[in-house]
Amino acid sequence: MLEVTGLNGWYGPAHILFDVDLTVGPGEVVALLGRNGAGKSTTFRAVVGLLAKRSGRVRFAGRDISDLPTHDIARAGLGYVPEDRRIFTELTVAENLEVGRQPARAGAATWTPERLFELFPNLGAMRTRPGGRMSGGEQQMLTIARTLMGNPKLVLLDEPSEGLAPKIVEEMATAILAMKGEGVSVVLSEQNLHFARLISDRAIIIERGRVRFDGTMAELEARPEVRDAYLAV
């Protein structure tokens, strides 16, 4: 589904990512783990074309998207939910969803507001409420729902649990598993190993811009030294 090879990224003069490789299969949930500043958000930004300077190849759903602008990458079916939610506070819930709407896509689940309200019942009860009047957890649900409106084949979720109450984080886990059930691949960046463990098939650990571990969740559990070295839980 997603195949990243030799990805390098720069932030101004600073070289942040070094030859990052990662692959995600159809319907797979992969956790990108690492400390703050390890390069998780930068990896996502590089994949969706929001980084000014980068090199390397990104193939998605059988096509090379390395040089496409951000909006064309989104139109290819690759959804991206940035770390700080960024819902449109002046727009209502329904309008927020409208911004994310894209035509139905072959080979991907088709989402409508009605279907999304089933997945996130809270949102259905507040369709005309401005985004700015929602709680943090509701806003996080809305950003995910908004991205699903584009009928993506794969979604990059940047720190979905950051700043949320533990209880909302549990609801988030349920929603991500539901997406997986619809065949949507998910890559989520996390610092919270407990949360990642609940939902992921595979883990990739990134540290100082390099991939240090790539394997199944069970393999990671079996190697506490890796966890201790790079995650400092």
């Binding site: 969706v48 929001l50 602008p69 951000t70 909006h71 064309d72 989104a74 139109r75 991206y80 940035p82 960024r86 449109f88 506070t89 002046e90 727009l91 309008e95 927020n96 409208e98 911004v99 994310g100 894209q102 908004r146 991205t147 584009g150």
Partner: peptide, 24 residues
């Protein structure tokens, strides 16, 4: 109109609109 909603969304956050597939 959809155009209007996109304009209002872009008024707040241009990059996010692009990440949702709109050619800003």
């Amino acid at each position: 109109t959809r155009f209007g909603i996109l304009v209002r969304a872009a008024t707040q956050d241009r990059d996010m609109v692009a990440a949702l597939g709109v050619n800003q």
